[in-house]
Simulated assay, not measured.
Amino acid sequence: MISADAIRGHIDLIVLSLLSTSPSYAYELAKTITEIGGYTIKQTTLYSALKRLEAAALVASYAGTSGSGKPRTYYRLTDGGAAHLSDKLSEWEDTKALIDRFAARATTL
């Protein structure tokens, strides 16, 4: 199980990557995170991330209607958000490579 502390620094990357495929609303994002990652994100954590990303102009919100007909606030990736996502994905690959090097050393002990 992944701790909240371990995932905290990567919530923005997760949200931006999901929004890169299509606009979505918070409940749908939370559901997708659980389905794909097996991680249950707290609603307050998700909403804080969405507001932070919107304040940074990485995502934009708009009013829409869900498939069930309920009004929803949808979020979409902005051009700046797409560029930021690309940078963050590159940073993630570097981070993962660094951790893998140390993990590999630990398994040989």
Results as ranks from 00 to 15, higher is better:
30 A>P: 01
31 K>S: 14
31 K>C: 09
31 K>L: 10
31 K>I: 02
32 T>K: 15
33 I>C: 03
34 T>G: 11
34 T>D: 15
35 E>N: 15
35 E>T: 15
37 G>C: 07
37 G>N: 08
37 G>Q: 07
37 G>P: 05
37 G>K: 05
38 G>H: 11
39 Y>C: 03
40 T>C: 11
41 I>F: 03
41 I>E: 10
41 I>M: 14
42 K>S: 15
42 K>A: 15
43 Q>V: 11
43 Q>N: 11
45 T>I: 06
45 T>N: 13
45 T>Q: 13
45 T>H: 12
46 L>S: 08
47 Y>K: 03
47 Y>V: 11
47 Y>G: 00
48 S>E: 09
51 K>N: 10
51 K>M: 09
52 R>I: 03
53 L>D: 04
54 E>T: 05
54 E>K: 02
55 A>H: 06
56 A>G: 10
57 A>C: 12
57 A>P: 02
58 L>M: 11
58 L>E: 04
58 L>A: 05
58 L>T: 05
59 V>Y: 02
60 A>L: 02
61 S>Q: 06
61 S>V: 03
62 Y>S: 14
62 Y>K: 11
62 Y>G: 14
62 Y>T: 10
63 A>D: 13
64 G>F: 02
64 G>W: 03
64 G>P: 03
65 T>C: 11
66 S>I: 00
66 S>M: 06
67 G>C: 05
67 G>T: 09
67 G>L: 12
68 S>F: 00
68 S>Y: 00
68 S>K: 09
68 S>M: 08
68 S>W: 00
68 S>I: 04
69 G>S: 13
69 G>I: 08
69 G>L: 11
69 G>N: 12
71 P>T: 08
71 P>M: 07
71 P>C: 07
72 R>I: 09
72 R>F: 01
72 R>C: 11
73 T>Q: 05
73 T>W: 02
73 T>L: 02
73 T>Y: 00
73 T>G: 00
74 Y>A: 04
74 Y>I: 03
74 Y>C: 01
75 Y>L: 07
77 L>P: 01
78 T>A: 05
78 T>Q: 01
78 T>D: 05
